[in-house]
Design a protein around this nucleic acid. Sequence first.
DNA 1: ATGATGATTAACT
DNA 2: GTTAATCATCATG
Length: 207
Amino acid sequence: MENKARERELLLSWEKGAVLPREFYCRDTVQVARELLGQVLVYHSPRGVAGGVIVETEAYLQGDPACHASRGQTPRNRVMFGPAGHAYIYFIYGMHYCFNIVTAAIGVGEAVLIRALEPLCGIELMQERRRRSDLRQLCRGPACLVQALGLDRSLNGAPVYKPPLLVYRGLAVSAENIVVTTRIGIKEGAGLPLRFYLRGSRFVSRP
DNA sequence: ATGATGATTAACT
DNA sequence: GTTAATCATCATG
């Protein structure tokens, strides 16, 4: 398997790396969105561990019409206004969940949407949850990765720097390996260069 | 109380 | 490229 060697390499970097500290997220949201590429998102679910390398992100900013927080605080978006480094998980289209990490200072409603992962661990479990065996179809898309990892509403507001949700430091990504483009699935604020993905990754939701 | 809508996905043509 | 699936959330009355 060509994937085996790759998986081993990634798993090694994950095991050696440290968990990204809370402070990592208390910064400029675009910067965090870029730097999250290459890091490893892991969820220790009751059924087992699953996770992968973050290969695609989107930034949602204050004053950005596409941002859930742009029209003030509501019960749904309240965790966006809370401390950085916590999960903002919301329900959409009557059947899907999306996973974000809150960024910036308290009171500033900004976050990074995680749009795709390169599967790394818990692959059999993810294949079962997704009812698909193809690695490329496991975590390709924001709602897909949530389903693959087994995330749900109960994790809304949970920190991502301690169990059961963890983001580990992975491989560093240079600026030339980050593609900057427009976000997907929004009406207002389309056209803003706030989507980021790993150049050449076959695991992004859309090139 | 009601109605419009959505940071999607899978399965079509 | 098009569309059905499916409902919590929010603005409005």
